[in-house]
C-alpha cells in the first residue's frame, strides 16, 4: 500500500506540473469489509485519466465523475458509497462495506 500511494501522490504532482487539471480522492472512513484501507488514494485528471484505487474498482467510475466537477469548481466534496444506496447495483460496494471519500482539487 505504501509504495503504490507513493506513486499516486508523485503522479498527482507531476500531472499538475504538466498543466493538467487534477483532483485527488482519498478514502477517509470505512465500515465493514471495505476493499481499500483508509488513506488510499485515487488521482484523476481533467480528461478522466486516473491512477490508484479507492475501492478496488467498484465505485471508481462515480468518483471520477465527481472529481471532474471538483476540478471544474474547485470546492472539495465528500462522497459516500455503500450497498444501502439506491444505486447499489450501479455504484455500490458488492462486498457489503461502506466508504466515505474526500475529493479535492490540486491547485
Amino acid at each position: 500500500m505504501l509504495s503504490s500511494d507513493t506513486d499516486i501522490l508523485a503522479a498527482a504532482e507531476a500531472w499538475r506540473r504538466a498543466g493538467r487539471g487534477v483532483a485527488l480522492a482519498t478514502v477517509i472512513e470505512t465500515w465493514g469489509s471495505a476493499p481499500r484501507p483508509v488513506g488510499s488514494h485515487l488521482v484523476i485528471d481533467e480528461a478522466g485519466s486516473f491512477l490508484g484505487s479507492v475501492s478496488g474498482g467498484c465505485v471508481e467510475g462515480a468518483v471520477i465523475a465527481d472529481a471532474l466537477d471538483v476540478i471544474a469548481e474547485g470546492k472539495p466534496r465528500i462522497l459516500e458509497f455503500g450497498v444501502a444506496d439506491e444505486t447499489a447495483w450501479r455504484v455500490g460496494l458488492s462486498c457489503g462495506g461502506r466508504i466515505r471519500v474526500y475529493v479535492e482539487r490540486v491547485d
Binding site: T6, A10, A12, E13, L24, E104, V106
Partner: peptide
C-alpha cells in the same frame, strides 16, 4: 490541496 503542500509532502517522503 495547494500545489506547494503536495510538493512538500512528496519531498518529505522522498
Amino acid at each position: 490541496m495547494r500545489g506547494e503542500i503536495l510538493r512538500a509532502l512528496n519531498a518529505e517522503r522522498a
